[in-house]
Every structure is written in structure tokens, then in C-alpha cells.
Computed example of a mutant assay.
Amino acid sequence: MSSPVLENILLFANPDVPDLGCFVRRKHELEVNEFDRNIHVELNPSIDFHPAHHQVYFRVQCGHAGHFQRALVKMTPDLSIPGPVLEHFPPDFVLGGDFHPQPSNWFKFPTQSGQRFYWFFGQHRDPAGGDWLSDKLVGHTYDLYENGTLSTVKYDDTGGDRDFDDFVLEAAVVGRRSWRDILQAVDQAKVSELVAKEGLAGVRERMYDEKAD
């Protein structure tokens, strides 16, 4: 599978934390799909948010588990590889690891355009040893913001107590505009201001004068 083409990050803002803007509303509380097992997917475009360019952030929020916990994170341009197969591919990022859950800093992909899928595979391992095993259940809440969306992703490792607090992640999809778009918008604002002050005829006259010079 070829890697998606990454955007030139120099054209976009690239803050260390997701700049989501003001909270709008919670679209839904914890939703669990038994068939998802340990797989959570963020996507762009979505029905709620579809910017031309976007950036995805993610981090460990917390966790209360006896097992070690981790999440493998992978970005793909399509759904050509089924999730259970993709879980065995080398990840782009790993959250957590051979220790009990603890909060982490934000991680992020470079700004992207077009269709992207972001996979989060929850896994756990007995501290006494053994292999990493896929978690049994995952659910998420979903919040809408002025400039993006935020999912709180909650894993239940063995599925025994269904408390969904063994490993908790946050995943944010943030809208991005290139510096060139922003500069064009500023230039357009200046033109609009001139039109308001001098009228369209005055702006045209000034443009012709500048061309003549």
C-alpha cells in the first residue's frame, strides 16, 4: 500500500494542540458498536465536517486498567484494506505501551487534503508477559466545535466489566486554511473596504491609474 501524499506543512498553521475554537454541541453520548471490537475510525470528509484541508490530533487522556494498554494509529487514503488486516501493518504512531495508562501530549499528522481515514486499534497486554491482544470493545462520544470535531474514544480491554475506562483517547479533526488563502481573503477585505468608501467606479479608476504607472 502506497503512503498518502502529505501536504506541504509550510503552507498551513501547525500548532502543538488542536485549535478547535468554541464548543458548539455534543452530537452523541457514548456509542458502542459490538462489531467494531477494538477499532475506532476518524474520517474526513464527514457528514458533520468537511473542510478542503484538515489536520488530525490525538492523545491519551487517561485510563484505569490492570493491563498495559496501547493504541496503534494508522492513516489511509481509502478502505481498501480491512481493519483487522490493517491492524497488523506497521503503525504511524503508537500511543501507550509497556506501562499502565497515563496522559500523553498531543500527537498529530501533517495537514491533509481530500479523503483520509484514521484508524485507532486498541490493544492490551498482561504485565506478567505474553502477546499484545486486541481489546474486546470500543465506544466514543462525539463533540462539534467551530473549527472541527472531537471524539473521546473509550476502550474496554477484556470486555468483562464493560466500564469503558481501561484506555481513553481523544481524537480531534481540525480545519485548516493555507496562508495563501488567508492572504487572499485579507486582500479581498481591503478591496471590499475601498468599494464601500469610494464606490466601484472609484476602485476601477484607481486600478487603471496603477496600470498606467
Rank of each mutant, 00 (worst) to 15 (best):
E205M: 14
Q184W: 03
A71M: 12
T141L: 03
A201S: 13
D181N: 12
V60R: 06
K190S: 04
W106D: 08
V32T: 07
D143C: 02
F167W: 07
G159F: 14
A172E: 01
I9D: 09
C62S: 15
G139I: 04
K27I: 09
L169S: 04
N33Q: 10
S80Q: 11
G63Q: 14
S104M: 01
L86A: 07
F68K: 04
N14W: 11
F23R: 07
V94S: 02
K74D: 05
G97K: 03
V186M: 10
L194M: 14
G130T: 11
G139P: 04
S3H: 09
P101T: 06
L79G: 00
F23E: 04
E87I: 13
D19S: 13
V191N: 00
G122N: 07
D187L: 13
V85M: 15
F35C: 00
P110S: 11
V191F: 01
D143N: 14
R177A: 10
Q123F: 09
G130M: 09
D48Q: 10
M207H: 12
S134A: 04
D213I: 15
D181M: 12
R206H: 06
V5M: 13
E34Q: 07
V17I: 14
D16A: 14
F120Q: 04
W106L: 10
V17M: 00
A189W: 11
T152I: 15
G139W: 02
A128F: 00
H28P: 01
L133S: 01
Q55A: 11
D126R: 10
G114D: 12
K190C: 14
H50G: 08
T149Y: 02
S134G: 03
A201N: 06
E29G: 05
D98S: 08
H64Y: 13
V203F: 10
H64G: 09
